[in-house]
C-alpha cells in the first residue's frame, strides 16, 4: 500500500520549549499508525500539526501528495481530526450536527445523504440523534464525534484518544468500526494511553518521548526489541 502521510524532520517550538524535535514517520493507506508516549511527549502537538491547526516550526508533512504546510485547504478536505477533548455544539441535535458536517464536506447532495446515513449507523445513537447534544452522556457525545470524524471516509483520520469516556462495550464497538473503515483504505493516525487498545488496533507504533521518536515498529517487533511482554512495558522502558 502507498503512503498516505509522510512526515519528515517535523519540529515545533513554543518559545524556548521544544515540544517536537525533528521527528519523521509515514502512514500507509489502510494502516493504523499509533503514537504512544507519556504526557507532554509531543503526541497531541504532532497530531495538531498534521491536522493543519498548528504550524510546524520546521519539517515537512505530505498528505496524499499534498504539502500540508503550504496548502492546508486541500489537506483539510482529505483528513478528519478527532481531538482528545473535542466537544460538539450543544444546542444542535445530533442529526443536525452530522448534517452540518456532511454539508461542509460534500457539495453533492447524494454524498451528503450517504455520509449522514453512514454516520447515524456508526454512532449507534438511534432515535437519540434527534435529541439536543447537550443532553448526551460523555460516551454518547464521543460516539457522535467519532461518527463525524469517519463519516466522510477521509484519506487520513487523526484520532486522539478515540475511546476516551466510553464504557467497555462502547470502546469495543468503536475499535471494530475503526478496523472496518481501515479495511476500505482509510489510514488512521492514532494516539492513546490505553496500551491494550493500541496493541489491538495498530499495525505500527512509534514511541515518542520528549519530542523525539525512540522506536518504531509493529507491536510484536517493539516487544521483541525491548524484551517486553506487552506495550506497557515498552512504553515504561522508553519513558524511563
Amino acid at each position: 500500500m502507498a503512503d498516505v502521510l509522510r512526515v519528515s524532520g517535523l519540529s515545533k517550538h513554543y518559545g524556548r520549549l521544544e515540544a517536537v524535535r525533528g521527528i519523521g514517520f509515514s502512514v500507509r493507506a489502510g494502516e493504523v499508525f499509533a503514537l504512544i508516549g507519556p504526557n507532554g511527549a509531543g503526541k497531541t502537538t504532532t497530531l495538531r500539526m498534521v491536522a493543519t491547526i498548528l504550524q510546524p516550526s520546521a519539517g515537512a508533512i505530505e498528505l496524499d501528495g499534498i504539502d500540508v504546510v503550504s496548502d492546508p485547504a486541500s489537506a483539510r478536505a482529505r483528513l478528519s481530526y478527532l481531538p482528545e477533548e473535542a466537544g460538539a455544539y450543544k444546542s444542535m441535535r445530533g442529526r443536525e450536527y452530522l448534517r452540518f458536517m456532511a454539508e461542509v464536506f460534500f457539495d453533492d447532495r447524494e454524498r451528503q445523504t450517504e455520509s449522514l446515513a453512514s454516520a447515524a449507523e456508526i454512532s449507534g445513537l438511534g432515535d437519540r440523534l434527534d435529541d439536543k447534544i447537550g443532553t448526551y452522556s460523555k460516551g454518547m457525545a464521543r460516539k457522535l464525534l467519532l461518527a463525524r470524524a469517519i463519516m466522510t471516509r477521509p484519506k487520513l483520520a487523526i484520532l486522539d484518544e478515540p475511546t476516551s469516556g466510553l464504557d467497555v462495550l462502547g470502546a469495543l464497538d468503536v475499535r471494530d468500526t475503526i478496523k472496518e473503515f481501515t479495511r476500505s483504505g482509510m489510514a488512521v493516525l492514532l494516539s492513546s494511553h490505553n496500551m491494550l487498545e493500541i496493541e489491538y488496533l495498530s499495525d505500527r507504533v512509534s514511541v515518542i518521548h520528549q519530542g523525539t521518536i525512540h522506536a518504531t515498529g509493529t507491536p510484536a517487533e517493539l516487544k521483541e526489541r525491548f524484551g517486553a511482554d506487552n506495550l506497557e512495558e515498552v512504553f515504561a522502558e522508553v519513558a524511563r
Binding site: A73, Y81, P83, A86, V104
Partner: peptide
C-alpha cells in the same frame, strides 16, 4: 470553551 474550535479549524472551510 466547548472544545469545538479545533474541529472547526480542521474542517475544509477557509
Amino acid at each position: 470553551e466547548n472544545k469545538t474550535l479545533e474541529t472547526l479549524l480542521a474542517m475544509p472551510i477557509s
